[in-house]
């Protein structure tokens, strides 16, 4: 267990340290252009010809997050060597999680259905 904690602490420390070092010691010359969104080279010029529709990206995020959370919960329970007794809390947790998702969808369903607001 010591090793795991050590690994995680050291790994994260090194990662954060390198960012902090870069942030503190690198030369800085801020400019408006640098902080803009990357637009493949040139600055935005006139209205776009075709808009990229991004409205389904939220669903992708939702799906991957929910899948990951449920997957982790399943693995945690099944590998805990606690047998059947542990399945009840898992089921409860799943019900709560799904209920939360259902609540959000219920609340915003009208909004989701309105395609014009996605733009």
């Amino acid at each position: 267990m010591v090793a795991v904690v050590l690994f995680i602490a050291l790994f994260l420390a090194v990662l954060v340290l390198l960012v902090v070092v870069g942030y503190l010691f690198s030369p800085r010359r801020p400019s408006e252009t640098k902080e803009r969104r990357f637009e493949a080279g040139g600055p935005p010029y006139g209205p776009v010809q075709r808009r990229l529709l991004m409205q389904y990206f939220g669903y992708v995020y939702l799906v991957t997050v929910v899948e990951a959370a449920v997957g982790l919960a399943l693995v945690a329970v099944l590998t805990a060597d606690a047998g059947r007794a542990a399945l009840a809390p898992l089921a409860a947790a799943l019900v709560v999680a799904i209920a939360a998702v259902v609540a959000v969808v219920w609340r915003y369903f009208k909004l989701l259905a309105d395609v014009r607001r996605w733009g």
Binding site: G22, P30, E35
Partner: peptide
């Protein structure tokens, strides 16, 4: 070189 290059955090 990358560590010591400017860290730009975009505005948006």
């Amino acid at each position: 070189k990358l560590v010591f290059s400017e860290l730009v955090l975009p505005r948006h």
